[in-house]
Write a protein that binds this DNA or RNA. Structure first.
Lengths: 371, 371
DNA sequence: TTGTATGCGTTATCAA
DNA sequence: TTGATAACGCATACAA
């Protein structure tokens, strides 16, 4: 099955055009059937004489033979490729997930076909079509509310191609999913600020349409309740639904300005995600408020740039790379189950978020201003 | 492996498994040859009766027919996919290029197969192998010094598959390339600082192995010479060669600390690239030096996060997305030339960098400290 | 204006 | 232990 991973040696082949199995067959003096068996190390290879194997392998190497994936597929029904759809490669949130997916796929010698929807529904549909034509063996979708659709469920699962979503869940049990435990994340974020002594806290909630927004806010509320912390409605705003990758940043900026205009003092700000936090920091800085000296800011996601920004951002980490890997594992299991005619049920994985403390938060006792 | 030896079952229109051209043929009452001609709108379609066309198209739609890309390839030799290799998707420098490539490819209904080398040579080679097996019609490589090799040239161009590199050039004329005009960029950067009145300027040069380092420095030197600006060797450092994506940031940090230790005053710092600049800013801030009030910093690349950081970064912009698009255009031209048996010579595109002024630079007259 | 036949490169099923 | 042969789904030359 798996092609031997020998490091390619120097090739003296003058082969300019494609060399096929037949070429190897004639060169080695055996039939193409035998060549196929040997080169794929098929079960029947057990019965092939070692000398024969060697001659065939030598000939293959000498000619620089490479199996033709297309022809192979036509017989075996396996394209050894899987479709990876996502909403926007420009979004720093996406890349770690993609890295996780790619890495896991590489281990299994699968090739990823990437489809960037640019946050456009028609583009998503078009790509889905293209991926189906290429007969990808499975589909992984890094989704947001825009890309979720009955389409996916209907067309994909009807064709029995395994699918998994990341950062989104679908109704029904045909499509697997991987998500972070948002409620726990929300709790961790507020807990951190609370333990630092912050009591007057501003909140920028996520947009309504986003599946993460609700649970995160719920986690926040629950924790507040458990420690009898009052959430001042005047200090709560909510991002509006938008498709733009930068909308988080701009939203954070704008809503922080709004909060400041209300003249209600707060010593900490809990942002929906990292980009929102960056926007907030920008607004605070512009207003002459120093982070973290005068106001702590916490984000969510732990996007790569959070470690690099000044100040570096305290945040709730989603194990994005791991999540990508998990999704691959799920569809792979499903593919293998199908191959072996075993049953397989989709599952919903929930991964654990983690508090990452950096420079943007600080104990409230050190902050001067108050009411 | 499902044995299809059973007597042909009637296929419902709610086709759950793959529907082939034959299915459309029988459903519409025509031969598969005619179906092929109609559905592909082949030249011969001119002679097909409109009524026939309609019946075939209707049948195809009703059955949910989708051409099988693999089978099609086996005939036409066209996989409608192209391989996109790059060194690290985690590098913010990569994503805009990938976006540009993907976008251009999408226009031509080509599918990209992404191969992330993780800055590892063996991984690059393994992926190259996989892409060749998948018979990609062309190759685009976003390269750094690690990934450049005779291998690429030898194996790829021997098989006559069009290739283009971005951010790197290969000897010989088999592989096209797209690069920014680094010398001009270097000049623009220094010119900006000079016009702001800065005279005592620190430099962090790029690593030796990187192809961009030389020309950028040359541009800097030339401009300095032209305005009789002295470059103080004590204020010049150079990044070391490294494979890590974060090395720029860490290098910027470390070398800025070194510069500060020398107690030589400078009012501006010219960094090799944006990440280096971020590292430098971090070091300056830590040392209590404010950017841009006490020290201006300029980067190179205009990575997405440069607009978001605090302070936002003045930098020399590479039109990364455009460059990705250009590379696609080049290989597409080459593919088409091959199809039409025309001649085609590789080319070397040079794109123009652009100064983007943001918050990290400021006129020197406003800076207090001097000598 | 449409149908028949053939082959693309592989692999699986026989038979030898 | 190995070799014919057929078939995967499609597109084309040629025939009708």
């Amino acid at each position: 099955m798996v092609p031997t991973g020998d490091p390619p040696l120097k090739r003296e082949s003058s082969a300019s055009s494609t060399v096929t199995m037949r070429d190897v067959a004639t060169a080695s003096g055996f039939s193409s059937a035998t060549v196929s068996i040997v080169l794929n190390n098929a079960p029947l290879a057990r019965y092939i004489a070692p000398a024969t194997k060697k001659r065939i392998e030598d000939a293959a190497k000498k000619l620089g033979y490479r199996p033709n994936a297309m022809a192979r597929f036509l017989r075996s029904k396996r394209s050894h490729s899987i479709g990876v759809m996502f909403f926007d490669i420009t979004d720093p949130y996406c890349t770690p997930i993609l890295r996780g997916i790619e890495n896991a796929l590489y281990q299994s010698s699968y090739v990823p076909i990437f489809a960037d929807a640019h946050n456009q529904k028609n583009r998503f549909e078009r790509y889905l079509e293209m991926l189906l034509e290429h007969h990808v063996e499975a589909l992984i979708v890094v989704a947001n509310w825009l890309l979720v659709d009955i389409h996916l469920l209907a067309d994909v699962s009807k064709r029995n191609i395994p699918a998994a979503t990341i950062c989104w869940e679908l109704d029904g049990d045909t499509v697997s999913s991987v998500m972070v435990d948002n409620e726990m994340g929300g709790r961790l974020a507020l807990e951190h600020l609370y333990q630092l002594g912050h009591r007057k806290i501003a909140y920028i909630r996520g947009p309504k349409m986003l599946i993460d927004s609700g649970p995160r806010w719920k986690g926040i509320q629950k924790f507040a309740q458990s420690v009898k912390l009052e959430i001042d409605p005047a200090l709560v705003t909510q991002l509006t639904d938008s498709f733009d990758a930068n909308s988080g940043f701009e939203g954070g900026y704008r809503f922080t300005e709004e909060l400041l205009q209300k003249k209600k003092r707060f010593t900490a700000l809990l942002a929906f995600d990292d980009l929102t936090a960056f926007g907030a920091i920008r607004a605070l800085t512009k207003a002459g408020i120093k982070v973290p000296e005068q106001c702590s800011v916490i984000g969510f996601d732990d996007v790569p740039l959070s470690a690099l920004s000044a100040p570096s951002l305290t945040t709730i980490r989603q194990p994005l790379e791991t999540m990508g890997g998990l999704a691959v594992q799920m569809v792979m299991d499903s593919i293998n189950a199908g191959l072996e005619k075993r049953d397989w049920t989709s599952s919903r994985q929930r991964v654990t978020p983690e508090l990452v403390i950096r420079d943007s938060t600080r104990a409230a006792s050190q902050t001067a201003a108050d009411d």
